[in-house]
């Protein structure tokens, strides 16, 4: 060995290589993780879009059926009723004919009111016309008439401020599902729906005094379950989230929140900008 510099230079080269390897691993790993995150985000976004399209098509189908029921079958039934009324006027006073005619007229009235109800339930026209508080109030009132459970509804904030129609519809469906769950499964005697509207922060709370449930079990329960996946799916589409405060014999309090609140006017403006 002639010169110690050979060893020192060799050591230096080895150290530089080692440092390069460590730095390369750190850099490469970070890049790979970032890419993995991007792919995951894209997948989540794709799933969200898919869910949105699927729900939009369901709503469109509901709207079409409601339209058909209202315009075709409803109109036909009304015409039939009018025709029958005209016929009834010419029946004379034979008792049996009169009794049968009365029965037919009652059946027609009932069918017409059923068609109207189904049509209204398929597309919440109150929601479209008057907004979320009015629609939820109407839904709660209707639910009281068909159940022995006491339902109360309250709201705070400005009822004239409207959210994006898509958001309002999703929130309405979520509230429907939560109220139905409370009525069908909670076993409680009271259900309270509370809505906080803008300009305060948005929040929807549905709570009952029933026997509650085990959240983990409810998520793994096979269909037909509590529709929790459907609720979460709808909320994912509108950037919302739900928290359940529940447990066996503790009742249930479901709190819905929106991560981002887009008011109707702003949404319209955004859509116009997008179109331009």
């Amino acid at each position: 060995m002639e010169s110690p510099y050979v060893i020192i230079i060799g050591t230096g080269i080895m150290l530089i290589m080692a440092m390069f390897i460590v730095l390369f691993v750190m850099y490469y790993q970070r890049k790979q993780i970032e890419q993995q995150m991007r792919v995951k985000d894209m997948e989540a976004e794709f799933q969200r879009k898919l869910l949105e399209v699927s729900m939009a098509s369901t709503e469109a189908e509901r709207r079409r059926i409601a339209q058909d029921l209202h315009d075709d079958i409803g109109a036909l039934l009304s015409v039939t009723k009018l025709t029958f009324n005209a016929l009834y006027g010419q029946l004379g006073s034979k008792d049996q004919a009169e009794r049968l005619a009365k029965q037919v007229r009652e059946a027609l009235d009932e069918t017409i009111s059923h068609v109207r109800r189904i049509s209204r339930e398929l597309v919440p026209t109150t929601l479209e016309r008057f907004g979320l508080p009015a629609a939820l109030q109407e839904f709660a009132a209707k639910s009281i008439s068909s159940h022995t459970v006491r339902i109360t509804f309250g709201y705070s904030g400005d009822e004239n401020i409207r959210l994006e129609p898509k958001v309002e519809l999703m929130l309405y469906r979520v509230a429907q599902e939560l109220i139905n769950n409370a009525l069908k499964h909670s076993g409680g005697t009271n259900v309270h729906v509370q809505l906080s509207l803008p300009p305060e922060t948005f929040g929807l709370v549905v709570e009952d005094n029933g026997h509650g449930f085990n959240l983990q079990e409810a998520h793994t329960r096979p269909s037909p379950g509590l529709g929790l996946d459907s609720i979460e799916g709808r909320l994912r589409v509108i950037n919302g989230k739900i928290n359940y405060e529940t447990g066996p014999q503790k009742g249930c309090r479901a709190v819905v929140e929106l991560r981002q609140l887009v008011l109707y006017e702003k949404a319209k403006k955004r859509d116009v900008e997008k179109a331009q």
């Binding site: 060799g10 050591t11 080895m14 150290l15 290589m17 080692a18 460590v22």
Partner: peptide, 8 residues
């Protein structure tokens, strides 16, 4: 770093 530096 240690073993690369000392191996030479």
């Amino acid at each position: 770093l240690y073993y690369s530096g000392t191996i030479f």
